[in-house]
Design a protein around this nucleic acid. Structure first.
Length: 473
RNA sequence: GGCGCUAUCGUCUAACGGUUAGGACGGAGCCCUCUCAAGGCUCAAAUAGGGGUUCGAUUCCCCUUAGCGCUACCA
């Protein structure tokens, strides 16, 4: 039974890269009928906030991909500490009484790497116990084997065989002097306790995996499998960050731009992964079936945004594709929400609304287009586009529209076919090209120079409103 | 600095030694047409550089370069 986890830390909103990690975990789990664990990695008390946790849930809820189990690391601290002290008791870890030294930040980069504090690593058990008993603060570090040239190695599902000399790994901290576990400790202790079988995470953890393996091996089998995912970067190749790139890194940006969650998921999946055939627009079901680590790339993928446009053009295209192809019944509620946010509502019953949505979605690419470009389908007051006004200003256009209104009113029926017949007949009788009247109609009915077939527009607006709009120009 | 990872059109990617290096987005053009989309067709656009291995390298190996990640109690 496969068990995978997504482990965000609540230090900001849900990041686009985190969202992709979650999505890919989800696909893998669902494909293999496993269990999806959501674990909140909140051991950094200084940086975690409830507001951030809330926004992570907000992002996750929008994606609408469910999880099966939920844990918070802050509620499992005893478990983490227990592992640290067990390693200490077994001599696999030791106390380091050196005070934290944040001012050493730049030093190690010019010289060799820091590996451990020799005096502390060599401290006798008695000496260490005595100082701890006296109340001296300490951090517990893993005693990385460095006597001989041993290696830690594993086979990553994406990156293949990985190995590193333990001599190159520093004695990393497990438990902070304030008693809180570090990420490495908490993560490993929980992965063991939660019986995680597959750790699927960002490539920024690839080199941390050697440390994790040291902890995991010390704790004993079974070992989870690892799959690291290439990172998402900005167009200049730099890491996506809130400070430098602003809200484009938040999933809510796409939501607020009128994206369908499915389209966003689809887009993110295609960054660093490929189904290896030419499919681009895929349903969740298709994505789930197609996903495998084989198709995952090893190099970073660029999210193609700019200052002028925070949305990747391909994401927008994919959204338009989904918008046009998902069952209209699925789309309608989303459109309704989008309309309600602008105090707009459908003109008539559900069947009519479905027809309208189905007709106009063929020209739209986001949910935001419905209350804006599509406003005339839901409200009598709408702006007149300058280009549309030109169509209305065609010689004799207004008079013809008034006449058309009379003819439509006189007709028994009101369908695309009857409207088209009425309009073409009128045009012919008055010796004008049908196109002139057609374009003027669209302009008067929607305020726009572009849109669906004009005859379809008549029906979508509705007979009474059509008569009013034709006559008021 | 040390260690690790990576390198195909502007971007996302396919090609697991032999292809005119394929597709998609975006760009340009044509067709269709009541407008605009969609759709169809066409064009421009890539194997970072240098060495090997091989009859033959995008593909395997090495070096260089570039980028990314980790690097003393962030995750």
């Amino acid at each position: 039974m496969i068990r995978a986890r997504f482990a965000p830390s609540p230090t900001g909103y849900l990041h686009i890269g985190s969202a992709r990690t979650f999505i890919l975990n989800w696909l893998y789990v669902r494909k293999h009928h496993g269990t999806m664990v959501l674990r909140i990695d909140d051991t950094d008390v200084d940086r975690n906030t409830e507001a951030s946790l809330f926004s992570i849930y907000e992002g996750l809820n929008w994606l609408a991909l469910n999880w099966d189990e939920l844990y918070r690391q802050s509620e499992r601290l005893d478990l983490h500490r227990k592992l640290a002290y067990e390693l200490l008791a077994r001599g696999l870890a030791y106390r380091d009484f050196t005070p934290a030294a944040p001012d050493l930040e730049d030093k190690p980069h010019s010289e060799g790497p820091w590996l451990f504090n020799p005096d502390m690593r060599a401290l006798s058990k008695e000496g260490s116990d005595a100082r701890a008993a006296a109340g001296e603060p300490f951090v517990i570090r893993f005693r990385v084997p460095r006597e001989n040239s041993t290696e830690v190695s594993f086979k990553d599902e994406v990156y293949g065989h990985q190995s590193k000399l333990t001599a190159d790994i520093e004695d990393f901290a497990l438990l902070r002097s304030n008693g809180m576990p570090t990420y490495h400790l908490a993560s490993c202790a929980d992965d063991i306790d939660l019986r995680i079988t597959h750790i699927i995470r960002g490539q920024d953890h690839l080199s941390n995996t050697f440390k994790h393996l040291l902890i995991l091996q010390a704790a004993g089998p079974p070992l989870p499998r690892f799959a690291h995912l290439p990172l998402l970067t900005a167009p200049d190749g730099s890491k996506l960050s809130k400070r430098r790139h602003g809200p484009v890194v938040s999933v809510t940006t796409y939501r607020d731009h009128g994206f369908l969650a499915l389209a966003y998921i689809n887009f993110l999946c295609l960054l660093g992964w490929s189904p290896k055939d030419d499919r681009e627009q895929m349903t969740l079901y298709e994505l789930t079936n197609a996903f495998s680590f084989e198709g995952v790339h090893r190099s970073n993928a660029v999210v193609n945004f700019s200052d002028a446009d925070p949305i990747d053009p391909k994401a927008l295209w994919l959204n338009a594709q989904h918008l046009r192809h998902i069952p209209v019944e699925q789309l309608a509620p989303l459109v309704r929400n989008s309309l309600e946010a602008q105090n707009l509502a459908p003109y008539a019953d559900d069947a009519f609304f479905l027809h309208v949505v189905d007709t106009i979605r063929t020209r739209f690419s986001t949910l935001l287009d419905f209350p804006t470009k599509g406003r005339a389908y839901f409200a009598d007051e709408f702006p007149m586009d300058p280009a549309a006004l030109e169509k209305l200003n065609a010689p004799g256009a207004r008079e013809l529209l008034h006449e058309l209104a009379d003819r439509i009113e006189a007709s028994h029926e009101f369908t695309e076919a009857t409207v088209e017949a009425d309009l073409r007949k009128l045009a012919e009788e008055r010796g004008v090209k049908a196109g002139v009247l057609i374009n003027a109609s669209r302009a008067s009915l929607t305020g726009q120079p572009v849109g669906p077939s004009a005859f379809a527009v008549f029906v979508c607006i509705g007979r009474e409103r059509v008569l009013r709009r034709l006559r008021r120009v």
